[in-house]
Amino acid sequence: MNCKFDEVIQHYFEDTEYTLRAVPFGLTNSTKVLEINGQRFVVRIYNRHIKTIEGIELESQVTALLAGAHTSFQVPNFLNTREGEKYVVLRDGSLAAITTFLEGKLPQLSDLERAKKFGSLVGEFSSEISVFPMEKNVYRGTSFTKMYEIHPLANRQSIRAFFASIPFEISEELFTFYQTMITDMENSNLDLEVLPQQFVHHDLLIYNLLAQLDEITGVLDFDFIGMDAAFMEVVISFNHMIQESGGSLEMMEAFLQGYSVKRKHSALEISYLPLLTQIYFIAVLHFYIGQYYAGATIEYNFAYMLNQFERNMNWLEKHDSKVKQLLHKYLV
């Protein structure tokens, strides 16, 4: 594998000594940290099933926009190759790129103040990226609402085949829950087209953030950037907060307090919280199914997300009245 990384580096730097080291992230792509000329960079060889040239170009354009804005956070910048490109096409057809390295560590969500800071970061990100142009000729990525297009190997037929013969054990209860959720979603009479649209990160979880001195300073992993309902961004991070806080209403309120300083939404958008939650989890599960057909081991991640899906939907139903109250109090 290092031979492929060496091939990438040759497109960016003249012959010189360098070292490569492994990273504790990069489940979707092959990623290493490059140390060269006293500097550090991130080298990424993209998953051939889910990254296209249009996708890399969109990612580089979005990160360039954010890097040029006066935000409280940094994003990785794409380096130019020696030929002036933002990416490399390797001999085997894989796509690769080198970006800047950002310092920091995983943020903690251990108290109300940190939950509020997380909410503020999500609100700021959503607000800043909302100005990205939406011309018809701009590649828009994949909306999570297109859950049968989230991965090229996960269409209706392959997903049906997966559930007809699941390659690992899941309970009958969880299987039935998934079937109920996707049926409810597909039979929903709510019109997603009426919701405001913008580019969405789709993965603003603490695992894709960096912190320094107890402040969130970096946003990573733009693999799933795409046009979607603007409210989807906060729905995803809100569900992440449910999981990380153990369902603490106090932590959820702190998150919304922070978010509301940077971003607001309409009562119509808020009414779509349950449906967008269903869409989010189903899209992620379908992505994992696509990864399974691509040869990846998905059992742990698939089971984790399916269990979280059930817990979160139960939590939202149990606290429906309070959640609606908080959302209208802070976001409208």
Rank of each mutant, 00 (worst) to 15 (best):
L220S: 04
L220T: 03
L220C: 03
L220A: 05
D221R: 07
F222I: 08
F222E: 07
F224M: 11
I225M: 13
M227Y: 02
M227G: 03
D228Q: 05
D228K: 06
D228L: 07
D228G: 09
D228M: 05
A230L: 08
A230G: 12
F231M: 02
F231G: 04
M232I: 11
E233P: 07
E233Q: 14
E233S: 13
V234K: 09
V234L: 15
V234Y: 08
V235H: 07
V235R: 08
V235P: 05
S237H: 10
N239E: 10
N239M: 10
N239I: 10
M241G: 05
M241H: 08
M241Q: 12
M241P: 06
I242L: 10
I242M: 10
Q243R: 12
Q243P: 00
Q243I: 14
E244Q: 15
E244Y: 09
S245P: 05
S245G: 08
G247L: 09
S248Q: 07
L249C: 09
L249W: 05
E250S: 13
E250I: 06
M251Y: 12
M252A: 15
M252P: 03
A254N: 08
A254P: 07
A254K: 10
A254D: 06
F255Q: 13
Q257F: 06
Q257M: 14
G258Y: 14
G258K: 15
G258V: 15
Y259W: 07
Y259T: 10
S260L: 03
V261Q: 13
V261W: 01
V261T: 12
K262M: 15
K264Y: 00
A267Y: 03
A267F: 02
A267Q: 10
L268F: 00
I270K: 00
I270V: 09
S271K: 06
L273F: 09
L273S: 04
P274K: 06
L275K: 02
L275A: 04
L275H: 02
L276Y: 07
L276P: 03
T277L: 01
Q278K: 13
Q278R: 11
I279G: 07
Y280A: 15
F281H: 12
I282A: 10
I282E: 01
I282V: 15
A283P: 01
A283D: 04
A283K: 05
A283E: 03
V284A: 14
V284K: 12
V284C: 13
L285Y: 05
H286Y: 09
F287V: 13
F287N: 12
F287C: 12
Y288K: 11
Y288I: 00
I289R: 01
I289H: 01
I289E: 01
I289P: 01
I289T: 02
G290E: 06
G290I: 09
Y292S: 06
Y292E: 03
Y293A: 01
Y293L: 02
A294K: 01
A294I: 03
A294Y: 05
G295C: 08
G295R: 06
T297A: 14
T297F: 07
T297D: 15
T297M: 10
I298G: 01
I298V: 11
E299Y: 01
Y300F: 14
Y300H: 14
F302S: 06
F302Q: 06
A303N: 10
